[in-house]
Simulated scan of single mutants.
Amino acid sequence: MNSSTALRGSTALVTGATSGIGKAVAQSLARQGAEVVLHGRDRSRGEALVKEIAHDGGTARFIAADLTDAEDTLRLASQAGDVDILVSNAGLYEFVPTPATDAANFDRHIAVNTRAPFLLVGALAPAMVRRGGGSIVLVGSSAARTPAPVGAAYGASKAGVEVLTRYWATEFGPSGVRVNAVSPGPVHTEGTSAMFGEHIAVLDRTNARGRAGDPGEIADIVSFLVGPASSYVNGSVLFADGGELSSLPG
């Protein structure tokens, strides 16, 4: 069970916080005492989550920003202020074949999934270094290591996240700023429900666990990675995919 005081006195920025994994992460960090800066595109959903967190005894505020826009991403970092925890969760995923992926589509994936965390870390990590500590968690994807017939742009953008995790752990680790990633497999969210529709049950047949994940399960891993219990964990990519299924001959 999460302690209600584990993160008291800290400020956390969570991108993509108004639904799915990001929402579960934001709620979890708020329950542990962090003041949470919520990012999203939909102001009404953001303000609703602020009220929900306040109702549960937590503290949050919302900033709307378009992560496909570099300047808007930097504005988000500026308005977030000094944060002790950054959870880069916002993601774009469109699972289409390569010939159907035009330059604009590819650029959107890179902008949201790779460039946005790059810009946010570049803007926020220096202040963490000056204060002598901080924690950054990037949300990757099993698509970075498990090829499929569609979604190459998404997989490439998330592979970049895993590489950046290791680089930043090396760059900022000596100054007390830990950088890690969680790499989820399929998770039941509003996004996956909309994508798969009546075929959503297929997600439960993709791993050795026999079911897709729940956003709260990923949030628990993020809470571990940002908290004091993981003080010696740096530069790690934690797979949370239920276990890959082995291919049997014949």
Rank of each mutant, 00 (worst) to 15 (best):
M1A: 05
S3M: 06
A6K: 04
L7A: 04
S10I: 12
A12S: 06
V14T: 00
G16A: 01
T18H: 00
T18L: 01
S19T: 02
I21M: 02
I21G: 00
G22I: 01
K23L: 00
V25F: 02
Q27Y: 04
Q27A: 09
G33K: 07
E35R: 04
L38C: 01
L38V: 02
H39E: 01
D42Y: 00
R43N: 05
S44F: 10
R45K: 09
E47L: 02
L49A: 01
K51W: 01
E52K: 02
E52M: 04
A54R: 03
H55C: 11
D56P: 11
G57I: 12
G58F: 07
T59P: 08
R61D: 02
F62Y: 08
A64C: 08
D66Y: 08
D66C: 10
T68S: 15
T68E: 15
A70G: 06
A70C: 03
E71W: 01
T73C: 14
L76P: 01
L76Y: 01
S78W: 11
G81F: 03
V83Q: 03
I85A: 04
L86C: 06
S88A: 09
S88P: 04
N89R: 03
F95Q: 07
P97E: 02
A100F: 15
A103M: 14
A103F: 13
N105G: 15
R108Q: 12
I110W: 12
A111E: 08
N113M: 06
A116V: 06
P117S: 09
A123N: 03
L124R: 09
A127G: 14
M128S: 13
G132S: 11
G133W: 14
G133I: 14
S135D: 07
S135E: 07
S135Y: 03
V137H: 12
V139A: 05
G140Y: 11
G140D: 10
T146F: 13
P147F: 05
P147S: 12
A148D: 13
V150E: 11
Y154I: 05
S157K: 07
K158N: 06
A159G: 11
A159D: 07
E162F: 09
E162C: 05
L164C: 09
T165H: 00
R166L: 08
W168S: 13
W168R: 13
F172P: 06
P174K: 14
G176L: 08
V177C: 08
V179K: 10
V179E: 08
A181K: 07
S183M: 10
S183I: 11
G185I: 11
V187W: 02
V187N: 04
T189R: 06
E190Y: 08
T192P: 07
T192K: 15
S193D: 12
S193V: 09
G197P: 13
G197V: 12
E198G: 15
E198F: 10
I200V: 15
I200G: 14
A201W: 10
A201E: 13
A201I: 05
R205T: 09
T206R: 14
A208M: 14
G210T: 12
G216P: 05
G216M: 07
E217L: 04
I218G: 03
A219D: 14
V222S: 11
S223A: 15
S223N: 15
P228M: 11
S230V: 01
V233W: 05
G235Q: 08
L238C: 02
D241E: 12
S246I: 13
S246E: 12
G250L: 14
